Computed example of a mutant assay.
Amino acid sequence: MRAPGEQDLVAWARPFFKDRRKFTELADPLLQGHYPMQELYQALDVAAMCLHEQAATRPLIGDVATTLAHLASQTYDPNAPN
């Protein structure tokens, strides 16, 4: 349902990785900004590692799954100080 230039998720997301100020544009808009920034940065670090040009430098999928499961298990208190 995306425009032709937005159908390839990797091609669409790659430019956002060049500027940390644009990282929030990679978050699900349904979250409406209600997520911990530190965990967003960590998830995007994992995603960036998965996008390495050389397959040998990409993390193993098991490591990715473990890391993302750990991030997903973290509790988020929107009222807690950053």
Rank of each mutant, 00 (worst) to 15 (best):
Q74G: 08
P81R: 09
A80H: 05
A43N: 09
T67W: 00
L26N: 08
T67M: 08
E6V: 01
I61M: 15
G5K: 05
E25L: 13
F23V: 02
L26G: 00
Y35N: 04
P59R: 06
G62A: 09
E39F: 02
P4W: 02
D8W: 01
A65P: 00
L44A: 07
P36W: 00
L26W: 00
D45M: 06
L30A: 15
Q7M: 12
D77A: 09
Y76S: 11
F17R: 08
P78H: 05
E6L: 10
M37Y: 01
A48S: 15
R20F: 03
I61T: 14
N79D: 11
V10A: 15
T75G: 09
H70G: 10
P29T: 05
D8A: 11
H34N: 14
L51N: 05
P78S: 13
M37I: 09
L60D: 14
L44I: 03
A11V: 06
T66V: 08
P15Q: 05
L68E: 04
Q54L: 05
Q32A: 15
A80L: 03
L51W: 09
D28V: 09
Q54E: 15
C50G: 08
D77Q: 05
R58C: 13
C50F: 06
Q32R: 15
M49T: 01
F23D: 07
E25W: 05
N82P: 02
A56N: 08
H70I: 01
A80T: 08
L40I: 12
A56W: 03
L68P: 04
V10D: 14
F16H: 13
Q74N: 10
P59C: 04
P29C: 03
D8N: 15
L71H: 02
T75P: 00
T57F: 00
E39L: 06
Q32I: 02
